[in-house]
């Protein structure tokens, strides 16, 4: 899993890109190239470079072990959940939970991580909202 996969994905992406570009609706007045021309060039460039990577791959990278990969997937899931729940839960609660989670997964003991979460959420709220007046998500509790 490395450059060959990258090249193949790139080729597929280029094909899909050119196909989508060809379906762009043109309006009746247009300049000589129109809205499709440059996307076609980009699609071509993507296809060419993907082919070059496919034909002359570098040595594959060190992918993380499955357990660690799962860790990364979990981190992404937490970020997505954070984004979705932020408007409902409010900034301070959502941020405290998310940053405590990251702190814990990066190696802090559970108690310290919880404290770090509260400190990070509180600190950002204090500096960016109270001192600088930035709008943060308001939850049911008003913060």
């Amino acid at each position: 899993m490395g450059d060959r996969a990258l090249g193949s994905v790139g080729l597929g992406l280029a094909a899909a890109y050119v196909w989508q570009a060809s379906r762009i609706q043109e309006s009746f007045i247009s300049d000589p190239i129109g809205p499709k021309g440059f996307p076609f060039i980009i699609g071509g460039l993507l296809a060419l470079t993907s082919l070059a990577v496919l034909l002359r791959p570098d040595p594959p990278p060190h992918w993380p072990r499955p357990a660690r990969l799962l860790e990364l997937v979990a981190a992404v899931a937490v970020m997505v959940a954070y984004a979705l729940f932020l408007p409902d839960a409010g900034f301070v609660i959502a941020t405290a939970i998310a940053s405590a989670y990251f702190s814990w997964r990066l190696g802090a003991p559970a108690m310290q991580a919880a404290l770090a979460g509260v400190a990070i959420a509180g600190g950002i709220y204090l500096v960016f909202h109270l001192a600088l007046g930035l709008n943060l998500a308001k939850g049911p509790l008003g913060f």
């Binding site: 932020l86 941020t95 998310a98 990251f102 990066l106 770090a116 979460g117 950002i124 960016f128 943060l136």
Partner: peptide, 28 residues
């Protein structure tokens, strides 16, 4: 230590992007 720094970096990133439009879509 990074276990306190990186969560802070992540959260400031989220705060900054959310601050532009208040949009969950942008965060995703």
């Amino acid at each position: 230590p990074p276990q306190f720094l990186m969560p802070l970096v992540a959260m400031i990133s989220f705060v900054g992007i959310y601050g532009i439009n208040g949009s969950t879509f942008d965060l995703l």
